[in-house]
Design a protein around this nucleic acid. Structure first.
Lengths: 204, 204, 204, 204
DNA sequence: GATGAATGAGAATTCATTCAT
DNA sequence: CATGAATGAATTCTCATTCAT
């Protein structure tokens, strides 16, 4: 009936995106399930045909956001370019994501915060942890690769550096959310310069 | 009644600390004002003699946490040591704070998250923004000082780097909260090496 | 689809029995129409092809239970045995029914209880009343017959005694439902002794 | 403030009686907690200061009804009259209670029915069972006493008869609720005649 | 100042019922 | 006929806040 929604499988995703939009605007707590339903153009009860709870919807939204980033990161990693080039591209991607996602940032903050005083506390922690692990692993592997190829200094602590990179972009997202006067690309460039210098083998 | 509380003025602070503890344990949303009152050893109604709302208490807690860090940072900056030494001390402080504050991290997440769908939205943003500005300014000034003294490379983008540093520690706090297997000192060391190398003038 | 259901007309009955089983297990309020449909092996919407509402189903179940008892009572009454013998058989039947129907008792309790705060309140009362009247009439007639034949004392208040008998078995059903340690046959025997002694003409 | 409610301790009882009235009128399911609060002249939330749930209120109401009957029964038992006289008084009391309590009957039906599909199922059963046990015990003891004194026939099955008596009055309450044309005193008289004749020692 | 009893706004969730297929 | 996706009415309970004592 509603022309936008056609296929079955996509209804759930439609709902996830509606929820993401409303969560982003109003915050998780202030969002009523009815708001999401309205935004999605469906009845309040229908939400529960797809998700068992409002919280479950928050998980779905977080995972959706997270997976979109993962996909983009993996796309960059799959490109056939030099390690140095790839590093630049990854930094660029980080800055882009942080910039594009400012509006989604509050959803992430909500997801982080929702991990306390909640029956699903463990699941929250698990989801966050595994997301972090994924990004750290990707970067760690990337650095190890470069070290193997001789592009990167062998003495660098790949894992620690990976954690640093993840932290930086995470923190940048938060900071940017609160202060839009910041220029994420400029900041990323400064950070990138540090990274490249610190990573690149001297004799390269 | 409770012997610990003697002077009037300290009652407010007593309440802030009680609130901080409960918020940290249960999360802001799951915390009832009664829980805080109980923890503080006072009556539920008395809380409203000191704070106009539960939210106001969250602000106070955040500001308390924030100020404790500021104080420590300023203490380091006031030390009479070389710029290089100071940088090391600041990094050390960052790692220490992040480590010591893991249990308080959820309160920060709550404060961040509470900035949406809220009448006090603007004030949240303001408090966060000004906290960030403070830390960035401190670091920016520190770098500028170093540059003036010739300790640090003149071409370095001090402001962007300051934002990076703040981001990194902010993000590290979050990451550590979810994954305690991380070693913040090791990560900070890796980050610090990058920073020092990137900052330090080559043949100073 | 389900092989058990062949003829059309029996589907309704199939549904009644499925509903009876589920109502008995979970109680009327806790039973969802979907549960009944599932138990009957049909789709949720199909229930409404046979009954206009969940409540209507409760009526059907009650009437089904009620009619099964009526049938058995009438069968005993039709037997060609002496009044005294018949009395014994009726008492036996009462004890049997109460025993066999313990599991169905909650459905009866539900039906009774559902008679308040309900649009069908009057219909509930009517159904219950007429069921009671039927059983009372059967017993009243039976006593009158015995009195006419000179088997039973003429001064006995047949109607009042009939009400007593119905009450006793009704109450026994309830009591047994809550306390399975009771022995309905032993109780019925004690009650029967009272009845027989009270009814039987002294020197008939 | 509300003049009717003065002392603390009576507030709970005030609430129980308000609930009883509303439950009786509308039935448990159709009663909203707000209805009870309104009837009691208090705020909706205040109900939860005294009872943890609507169901808990039903328990309280049942126990209140139950205890009022117990009290009256015990009063009769305490009277210094002959066994025969006491039996008559007990029967009279039964008829009175059943008559006076017709309007409360639906609450009892609700309580019985609520014992299914409920987390408190066991507690329901327990309360009912113990109520029944109390009344059976009272009557059993009474019969035993009479037997000891030689007033009642020694071969009578006291326990079974006690169960019968309880059943009869229970069932009478239900029957009367649905059919007000019944005369409980007349029915009780018929039942009483049976009982007395069956109990009383022949040579008395 | 301190207190806690009283309050009612507010929201998630359930589920009987409908109806397009 | 049969179905189950969609719906929204309806209600319990929570808890921040107030205010009389």
């Amino acid at each position: 009936m509603v022309s936008t929604i056609i296929d079955r499988g996509s209804k759930r995703q439609h709902l996830v995106e509606a929820a993401a939009a409303v969560f982003a605007e109003q915050g998780f707590t202030s969002t009523r399930v009815a708001d999401i339903a309205e935004r999605a153009g469906i009845g309040k009860g229908t939400v529960y045909e797809y998700f068992t709870s409002k919280e479950e919807l928050l998980f779905a939204v977080f995972e959706w956001i997270d997976s979109r980033v993962s996909t983009r990161v993996e796309a960059v990693l799959a490109e056939e370019i030099s390690g140095h080039e790839k590093l630049l591209r990854l930094l660029q991607l980080g800055a882009d994501v942080v910039t594009e996602q400012v509006e989604m940032q509050p959803v992430i903050l909500d997801f982080w915060a929702a991990s306390r005083g909640n029956l699903l506390e463990d699941r929250h922690r698990e989801v966050c942890t595994s997301s972090y692990r994924f990004f750290r692993k990707v970067i760690t592997d990337f650095i190890h690769d470069g070290q193997r190829r001789g592009d990167f200094r062998p003495e660098v602590d790949a894992e620690a550096l990976a954690a640093t990179v993840v932290s930086t972009f995470d923190g940048l997202g938060v900071q940017l959310f609160f202060d839009r006067s910041l220029d994420p690309h400029r900041i990323t460039e400064a950070f990138g310069r540090l990274l490249i210098e610190g990573l690149t083998a001297e004799t390269s």
